[in-house]
Structures are given as C-alpha cells and as structure tokens.
Design a protein around this nucleic acid. Structure first.
Lengths: 150, 150
DNA sequence: AGTCTTCCTACCGACTAAGTAGGAATACTG
DNA sequence: CAGTATTCCTACTTAGTCGGTAGGAAGACT
C-alpha cells in the first residue's frame, strides 16, 4: 500500500480537527478550526492543505464557514468517521493494479488467479482502515482497532 | 495498495515459468523457459521483461542459463514461492508512507496513532500475500489462499 | 568462428505527485 | 457601505518515478 502525502496530510488534518472539537469540551460541532492553524500544528504547507480540505468537504466529512471566525469542523462525531472514509475521500480506490481498480485487472492464461489475490488484499486493507475511527486514534485504545496477528 | 506494472509482470512471468516446469511432467527444475516465450505468452514487452527477470534472479527466485537452449527456471518448487516473495523481489517494501517504509513515518502530536494503523495494514497485506503460493494460483484450489470475506 | 541467449547500462517520454501563486466569492464588523 | 478575514477555486511549476526502448557486452553451445 502506498500512502501518499495527500492522504497522510488529510488524516492528520482530520485528527487535528477532531481533537479541537472534543478537546474544547463543547458537545456540539460548532468548534471551527482555521486552515492556517491546522497547517501550523501539523506542519503542512498551507496552500497544499487548502486543496485537501476542499476534497474532504466535498466528500461530506467536513463542513466549512467563510469569513472572519470561519474554519472547518466535522460533520459527524469523530467516532463515526473511519480512516477508510478519509482515504477514499482524497485518494480514490484503496487498491489499484497498474492504475486500474483491482477487480478489472484483465488477466488471461496462467495468471487468471491473480485477480483473487488482489481482491483478498483489498478486503484485508479495507477491514483494517474501516474498523479504525478517529477517536480510536486519538484515545489510543488498544481494543479499538483490528489486530491482524493472532 | 498500488500494484505496479513491474510487480504485475513479475508475477505473471513467475507463474508462466512455474506452469512450464510442472506442466512438462519433469520432476526436476531443468525445464528452461526463454524470456522471449514468456513475453509472448503473457504479452509483456520483451526489453522490459528482461530487467524484471534480472531482479528475480538476483533475489534468488530464478536461476538462468545463457546461450542457445538457455532460459530461466525456478530455484525452488512453486509451492514454496509466495506472492509476497515475488512482490518484495521487484518492489521493495509492501507498504510505504510518503515514500518511506511504514515504521518510520515520524508523526507528532495528535497524529501519533497513525503509525499503528499503517503497521496493521502492512501486517494484513503480508498475511495475504505470504500465504498464497504460486501453485495455489495455478491450481486455483479454494483452500489454498486466505479468504478475508468469510 | 558463429550463433543464440542472457546480462547490463544508459536513455527517453509521459505522467503524476507535491507544492506555489493569485485571485474570486463569501461572511462578518464597524 | 467600506474593509477585512477567510474559504474557495483554477492554473501553474517543478521534480521524480514509471513504463518502455536501444544497443551492445559476456557467456554458452555447435
């Protein structure tokens, strides 16, 4: 699996927004965080981050507000947003074979069985990232995310 | 997971070599297959394939013989070569975060938990590709490889 | 010697990823 | 209504990798 800078930044930004919301003690989602403060606390280039935040908003994970005192906030509770949600919002499909989604690799001859392998890999990745929520990462509860070994 | 053309070709070539060895009926590994025939049967550009076969040989998965009647053969039985072996031979690490191996992502602040996610993903991928051998793919035995989605 | 095949290095074009720049739209303040 | 702060959006630049090609050198057999 290749995690691009874009995906990495997206996750870190989402975690920072989630931390600001829950840390403030306010139960609602009214805690707006500015892009500039996200860029600073996680050391992400601001211009680059803005494009990423736009993707996250289009995917329905963030909502934003313009003008003074504007910023970003989660649309759902952090416990209901998974790592997989964020990755898919900015990166498209989790598994690609030569640029194509895994299910349409198009093999023939002795290589026909490879499609099943890619699908199994895809399922394994999805299981991990879809069972890990933002709160799992913030609280670092060991029982929160899937343990592949054992 | 991104499967590059290089990795894809490598697996298809290995499968073709394995099929030629077992299909011939000869128990030994003496069945040499030429790069040109591999390129033709799996529709891989010959010049590109030669570089890949070189990597596979350096990784100890193939041995080669030059001159007329030369070619490539497996160094081990196909049942003892896994998909993971082939992928690592041509592609380096299975999971990379911004170009770096997963274990040295280097997070700080609220993003500290991300490392565990990448390691869990890495483990999940490794479990699949390391438990699938070339013979599993050739015989298409359902019990051979892991089934993630029960 | 001659031929066949692997071996090896260098190179090229195209694409994408990462990051930058600059401005338009929107919201609040006074 | 003027002004300011912030998100929004598009275009651009740069650097690196990926896929593929070319041309020979080294070895093996007849």
């Amino acid at each position: 699996m290749y995690v691009s800078a874009r995906s990495d930044y997206a996750l870190r930004a989402m975690l920072a927004v989630a931390a600001a919301s829950t840390g403030g003690g306010e139960g609602g989602a009214g805690e707006l965080v500015k892009a500039a403060s996200l860029a600073e606390v996680q050391e992400i280039p601001l211009s680059f981050l803005q494009g990423i935040l736009l993707d996250l908003r289009r995917a329905g994970l963030l909502h934003s507000h313009r003008g003074a005192e504007g910023g970003y906030a989660l649309t759902r509770p952090a416990a209901e947003i998974t790592v997989g949600d964020v990755l898919r919002a900015v990166g498209g499909s989790l598994t690609t074979v030569r640029g194509l989604p895994a299910e349409r690799a198009g093999y023939h001859g002795v290589a026909a069985g490879l499609t099943d392998v890619w699908l199994a890999v895809h399922g394994a990745i999805a299981t991990v990232v879809d069972s890990t929520s933002l709160t799992d990462l913030l609280t670092r509860d060991p029982s929160g995310h899937a343990r592949s070994s054992s």
